[in-house]
């Protein structure tokens, strides 16, 4: 063997640091960090900044770990779908067993460290969230029922509740409302995505509502959940985490969101295909802003309360 043969520059299939980081679904983690931080900061109990930082970080690591477990289990589906084929496991950069090992190790570490940093209630909720996402959603619901993302959405809804529990040591109406906000927001957000990504789910055999019941039914479901979400989101304004800023944000965004859902409901496939799902894509983009702005407003209320501006 010569130096020349040793130094070939062909890709080797050995994972880099970024590949392991990608296993943790960094984009989902950023949403978890944000909502968990809002839950923690909106709580009526002051938390030391180091404890707050550590708690949010361990919640994010727990969420990332469940993402790695999801990628381990779903490698076969991910391989088929264009959106996910480049992920570390289906692309062959990370071995499935490595994803399993990383997910399991980080799950245990995150739960234990959150218990040490804050309390057992928060750690218990984090453990349940990981179990719910990795086992209930990924292994069971996702391949079984078209209601997969409705029930599975609970996993993404827990972080603000865990953040709140890290500060207060318990669960309250406000933390349940933050949970409900994400829980009811998830179906219209995801089904809007499915409306313009349908062929991928069909190819992978995932029983998305668009695949099992068709797009007409999905459009009706988007509207139904949006109508359910609006009073919940606006009603939250009148609790201790709400206030005039939140109310203004919620009224404007829910009016836009309901209008978007009605537009989706009124459209047929011919029109949607003609303009390349412009309305559906716009609704999906709005849904991202919707969640960010609602939690941003909760944070603003909490941050401004000491100055007599936030809250009622």
């Amino acid at each position: 063997m010569t130096d020349t043969s040793l130094n070939t520059q062909a890709p080797t299939g050995e994972a880099g640091f970024g590949d392991y980081f990608a296993l943790l679904k960094p984009r989902v983690m950023s949403l978890v960090v944000f909502t968990a931080a809002v839950g923690l900061l909106a709580a009526p109990v002051a938390v030391h900044p180091v404890v707050a930082l550590a708690s949010v970080l361990f919640i994010a690591v727990g969420a990332g770990a469940s993402g790695a477990l999801n990628m381990w289990w779903d490698a076969d589906i991910d391989q088929v779908m264009k959106r996910t084929a480049g992920r570390p496991v289906p692309s062959g950069r990370v071995a499935p067993q490595e994803a399993l090992a990383l997910g399991t190790a980080l799950s245990g570490m995150a739960v234990v460290m959150l218990a040490l940093a804050s309390n057992f209630v928060a750690a218990g909720l984090l453990a349940f969230t990981i179990f719910f996402y990795a086992v209930i959603y990924t292994m069971w619901l996702k391949r079984w029922t078209p209601q997969n993302i409705v029930i599975g959405g609970a996993a993404g809804a827990f972080p603000p509740m865990i953040g709140w529990a890290a500060a207060t040591g318990g669960v309250s109406v406000e933390s349940v409302l933050m949970f409900a906000l994400i829980f009811v927001w998830t179906p219209p957000h995801f089904w809007a995505l499915c409306l313009f990504m349908n062929s991928d789910y069909e190819k992978a055999g995932v029983p998305m509502l668009t695949v099992t019941h068709g797009r007409r039914v999905t459009r009706r479901h988007v509207l139904a959940y949006t109508l359910l979400l609006a009073p919940l989101a606006v009603g939250t304004a009148f609790t201790s985490i709400g206030g005039p800023i939140y109310l203004a944000v919620a009224v404007v965004l829910n009016a836009l969101f309901v209008k978007g859902a009605v537009d989706i409901w009124r459209r047929d496939e011919t029109r949607a295909q003609a303009d390349k799902y412009r309305v559906e894509k716009r609704f999906f983009g709005l849904s991202l802003l919707y969640l960010f702005a609602h939690f941003g407003a909760i944070l603003a209320e909490a941050a401004l309360a000491p100055y007599g501006i936030g809250g009622w």
Partner: peptide, 20 residues
């Protein structure tokens, strides 16, 4: 040195530094 660093070694170093 005439040895060109292999891409694999670069990736390993990146991984080690990242983990560190």
């Amino acid at each position: 040195s005439f040895r060109v660093e292999h891409e694999l070694h670069k990736r390993r170093r990146g991984r080690n530094i990242g983990l560190g």
